[in-house]
Design a protein around this nucleic acid. Structure first.
Lengths: 219, 219
DNA sequence: GCAAGTCAGTTGGAATTCCAACAAAAGAGG
DNA sequence: CCTCTTTTGTTGGAATTCCAACTGACTTGC
């Protein structure tokens, strides 16, 4: 467990917790670490989970199989990040997604009930952990809401403008860079890459936008 | 405060908490109730909030103004339901939405820091509250993720099938009823009502679906 | 019974997106 | 410098959606 302290220190879940407090905290939570081989199933759709996972090393993939067996990739989760936390904390009876190890991976599992249960010694780092957890889920919530804001627009042009203006506001100015390449941006906004590319060109031609690679400027 | 106990008893946030525990709990949380008149602003975009709200009576509306002042309604919140909880718990620096009272309303405000802070007496209902909060935010998370699942499909037909099959799975059978009328369903799926109506007709004609009003059956 | 209102379905042309294929530009590596 | 690969931009026809308007069924209130 010691060897993973460096990973845990950098995670949002353990943010603000002193290194010295890790040992008692982890034993208080009764965490367990498990090694998975590449391709091995971590969670399967339909089961009920009480624990969520933290990736220590490697990578896992969250997959959803829809009504006729078409699977779509919801996310790839790398070191320091969580998976299954919403389902574990919501107490959902049947997991609608599956999780598979993409590489050989070390995973940490934390029981959601134990996270929120009062610990026998009133450790204040335990409270910090709860705050962090609530913040993580809330931030994800905000990100999802914002994504819906963008993708619910009807045209590619409106989706782009909604996204770009939100990025501009976030950057606090008209110049900003985005964390996507064109294909990733198209996927994020649920549009065609080529149509989006064409629309970006039109926006530039009509003088509302400058861009070069990932650098944008709204005019 | 006493007169609102009936509302609070029925809320998800206070689920599982004994009526006798309400008084000490509410004073431990240092909640405050405020009356707003119709049309009055509760939260304004740009401010930083530490408290979230619970509607006791009346109704509030969550509004987002986009880059050129076009406002869109994100939600109407009625008695027993929360608003602003994601932003308060995430510690966002600038609220991207505004909240306005739709009717004369009594609102309860709870400080997010106080919610997660350990209380001096180790009240176990306090822990129950934290669990409830985490569950609420997580469930919202799941609902948002699912909505994205549907709306990110490219065609109206695929959006419909994704939604309807998820509803069928949730109902545990092929027959189910949906909580929307046509216009609401179209808004939820971000499609045109008339195009959706046409697509529903095609699906019925091609024999994959029966429906009558809100009653559906997948074949 | 009748008028007004709401809701669902239908239709046709305009607008937009999708798709596939190709071209151009930028890097990476030898 | 050359080749291979990745990324981005462009284009044209097919497919889909959007929009506006209309019809018909049903409800409500008088």
């Amino acid at each position: 467990m010691k060897k993973y302290l460096n990973v845990l220190k950098g995670t949002a879940l353990f943010r603000g917790i002193e290194e010295a407090d890790f040992e008692p905290l982890l034993s208080c939570l009764q965490v367990r670490t498990v090694r998975y081989e590449k391709g091995q199933a971590v969670f399967s759709g339909g089961e009920r989970i009480r624990e969520f996972g933290v990736v220590l090393t490697g990578q896992v993939q969250v997959i959803q199989d829809d009504y006729y067996g078409n699977r779509s990739i919801l996310a790839n989760i790398g070191p320091g990040n969580l998976f299954g936390e919403s389902f574990a904390c919501a107490g959902a009876d049947a997991l609608p997604v599956g999780v598979t190890a993409l590489d050989a991976s070390e995973l940490l599992f934390i029981d959601c009930g134990r996270l929120t249960a009062p610990c026998t010694r009133a450790c204040d780092f335990h409270n910090r952990l709860i705050q962090n957890m609530l913040r993580i889920v809330s931030m994800k919530n905000i990100a999802l809401t914002q994504k819906i804001e963008f993708t619910s627009r009807r045209t590619t042009r409106e989706k782009l403008l909604a996204y770009l203006s939100a990025e501009a506001r976030r950057a606090g100015g008209s110049r900003f860079s985005i964390p996507f390449n064109r294909q990733e941006l198209a996927d994020y906004l649920s549009v065609e890459r080529s149509a989006m590319s064409a629309e970006l060109g039109k926006l530039r031609d009509s003088g509302v936008l400058h861009f070069h690679k990932n650098e944008f400027e709204l005019l």
